[in-house]
Structures are given as structure tokens and as C-alpha cells.
Design a protein around this nucleic acid. Sequence first.
DNA 1: GTATATACATAAGAAAATTATGTATATTTT
DNA 2: AAAATATACATAATTTTCTTATGTATATAC
Lengths: 112, 112
Amino acid sequence: MKKSSLYKGCLEPILLRLLKDHGRMYGYQMTQMVKDITKGELNITEGALYPLLHKLEEQGIVETETEMIGNRMRKYYSLTKAGKKQTSIAMEEMKAFMQSLEYIVNPKIALG
Amino acid sequence: MKKSSLYKGCLEPILLRLLKDHGRMYGYQMTQMVKDITKGELNITEGALYPLLHKLEEQGIVETETEMIGNRMRKYYSLTKAGKKQTSIAMEEMKAFMQSLEYIVNPKIALG
DNA sequence: GTATATACATAAGAAAATTATGTATATTTT
DNA sequence: AAAATATACATAATTTTCTTATGTATATAC
């Protein structure tokens, strides 16, 4: 995803969050939206993205519809019912994770 | 470090931050302090901790002093001059990372 | 005296990314 | 009109980073 390896482990919840907020999305669109939202900070690589999306599909977290736009393929992903439940859990974990990081990186403010 | 793989990639900056804030520390102490600060959220495993500390020492980021407390060894770590510089960089990266996560997980607030 | 806590260390394996490569169409730049 | 960039998917090889398991040894609590 990026040189600075901080993002390792966060890709799945990030994608779930995107799908939760924006409904149906295709892979390339996800990479562009994340790049935009984070002002270029976070660049998802294809080698990380597509295998993960395929895994989520296998697990029944997302479902897909393939469309032809002009002559080009697009594979749209959306959360299943199970996926929505899973996303709620993932968001709670993210919240706790981010709070923990805050405690460490900004102890004075965090404890106040 | 934990089941929920979110923390992957964050261990090194966390340790650097601890050493920056508390000066001289030993490994076990780091694990306990992180556990305390994060209210049990973040449990650093020995298999992650010690190899990383050794790597940081090899890289000249930290230096060590071994002491005997009673009959038991303690290996104290502290930041070198290069380590302090490296820590500043790592903290800037952490800040950007956390901001990016905020943008994604909490888009409305983050954009305000 | 048994369990838990303190304190280090390393090896095997798994998880999650990066980098490289491949295919193909569409658009922009020169 | 050719070349470069952008769009859009995919997979394989490798690297990074962690978990799990194992090992040694002392100290403290029950």
C-alpha cells in the first residue's frame, strides 16, 4: 500500500468502510477515492487490493456484479448482509485501535 | 502483537515513542507500559519485541546497557542521537497515518 | 511446592503487504 | 499519429512483520 509500513493490517477495514459509506464500488475506484480522501497519503497497490477483494468475496463479506463500460470491464463490489455485520465489528475494532494509538502518541491529551 | 492485525507495522514507532517519552527502558517494561496505557488493548508479544529491538540496535537507532538486578538480567535500551532523529521522522509519519485513518473512518468530522 | 510474574532469546510458520509482470482499452500530450 | 498516461482487471514471487511455540532462569505469591 505504501512505503511506510504503518498501513499494514488496515486495508481490510478501510475497504469495508468505503463500501459501507458509498455502497457499490469497483476496485480501481476504491484506490482513487482513498488517494483523494487521504490527500495522496495512502496509495493502495493492486497486488494488495485485488487478492483481498477476492478473499472477501469467498468469505461472503462482499458480492460482485460485472459490467461492461464501453469495451472495458468493471467489477462492482457491495457488502452482503453478513458483510454489513462484519463491518460494524471491524469499525469498533478500528475505533479501539485508533484510541490506543492516540494514548501512545499523544499521552497527555489522551489521558485528559 | 494481537489477534486483530491492525497493529501490524506500528510496533516500531510505538517503541520509539516510548523511548522518547521515558528515556531508558527495558523490553519487558515496554510490554507492560503499552498494556497499561492502552488498557489491555495492545499486548506486544516477545517474538515481535525482541527481534525488533535487536534490529534497532544493529541499525544504531538504540543502544543498550545490561544490568543485573538481584540475580536477574535487564537490558536497558535508549535512543541514540540518530535514533532521536529517526523518531522525529517516525512521529510525523504516525501523525499523517492517524490523520488519514481519521479521514476514512470519520469522514464528516475529519473534513470539518 | 505450584502457579504466576519477571526477563531474556530464538525458530518455525502465517499473514499481509510490495514489487514485478501481464493483458487490454481510453484518453491526453507532444 | 505516436507516445505517454490513465483506466481496469489479475496473479506470482518476494519481503516484511507479526504470532505461536519453545527454551532458559530467577522471584514472588498462594
